[in-house]
Computed example of a mutant assay.
Amino acid sequence: MSSGSAGANFEVPFIAIEPGRRLVAMSLRAKESNLATVASVLYSKIAVAGVRILGFSCSADGDEFLCVGLGDYTNASALPAEVAAALAVIPGVADVKIYESSVEGFAAVRGLVLESAEARAVLMSARALAGLFQGPREYLGEDAGAAFVYYEGFFTGRATGEYLSQFGRERALAMLPGIWEARGYGTPIETLSDPNGGHYRFEVGRLVECDVLSKYVKGRARTSNFFRGMIAGALSSIEGGEWDVEEVECINDGSDKCAFEARRRK
């Protein structure tokens, strides 16, 4: 696993915090045939007006697309309402909304129920994940806290495995790394399996758990318990039986990746 395949950072355009700037969020609905026109307005007229586009994304919603974006109007010659008006006159565009907070330097898209793979979803930043991964250790002690985090991961992985199992064992195992990557756990994620069964190796670049925990580590350590539990839980659903999972390499122990060995318990 080379460092050149470490993946690109992708900013989800729902929230922006830049103190001292005039930030505005916006949402709209558009027919598929009008998306090109919407993009043209965003990246020509709006950009020319001095609006710095921080992010823009669209998602299919029935026969329409729901689009959201963030813009920095600090040095813009156009007002947010003028931008909204320019978008609203495009045929097929409707429900243009502007979200400008009373807090300077903050913008957030409101009114969305997030979904991923037809299920409710939430976004958690590293700041929130630190509480999830490190909080139990501080409250319960290192050993009990690590066990608590492991079982959080185990039941998370088991639920994912139960969902994927409907597609069959081979497809479920093939989809699993892609789902974990798409949800931001790490990238790239590679899976190696023993042809005789009962043994897997997962190699994970930029594992979010160990990245978040790096500032809490004193000295060298292997710090994953949540993802280790996720692997065990997913395999228990997809393959059946119980699995022992060990983190054998960790970015907090000097490696360029986190690696896990999973073996079926005898």
Rank of each mutant, 00 (worst) to 15 (best):
S2E: 10
S2H: 12
S3F: 12
A6C: 14
G7K: 08
E11L: 12
E11R: 11
E11W: 11
V12A: 10
V12F: 12
P13Y: 10
E18R: 11
E18I: 14
R21A: 12
R21C: 10
L23R: 00
M26I: 14
S27M: 02
N34W: 05
A36D: 13
V38P: 01
L42F: 13
A47V: 11
A49M: 04
G50D: 03
V51L: 02
V51F: 01
R52Y: 02
L54Y: 08
S57D: 03
C58R: 08
A60E: 08
D61E: 12
E64P: 00
V68E: 00
L70Q: 02
T74D: 05
N75W: 06
N75C: 06
A84R: 01
L87D: 00
L87A: 01
V89E: 06
V89M: 07
G92I: 08
V93H: 00
K97I: 00
G105N: 01
A107Y: 00
V113R: 12
S116A: 12
A117L: 12
A117P: 01
R120H: 15
V122M: 11
A128V: 15
L129Y: 13
A130D: 11
L140E: 05
G141L: 04
G141Q: 05
E142M: 11
G145N: 07
V149C: 07
Y151K: 07
Y151S: 09
Y151N: 09
E152M: 15
F154G: 01
F155W: 11
A159M: 05
G161E: 01
Y163W: 09
R169S: 12
G178M: 04
I179R: 11
I179P: 00
A182P: 03
R183F: 03
R183Q: 13
G184V: 02
P188F: 00
T191S: 09
S193R: 13
P195W: 08
G197S: 06
G205L: 03
R206T: 14
L207H: 05
V217I: 15
V217Q: 09
G219H: 09
R220Q: 13
N225D: 10
G229W: 02
A232W: 01
E242Y: 12
E242T: 15
E246S: 14
C250V: 03
I251M: 04
N252I: 06
D256R: 04
F260K: 01
F260L: 08
E261A: 14
R263A: 08
R265L: 13
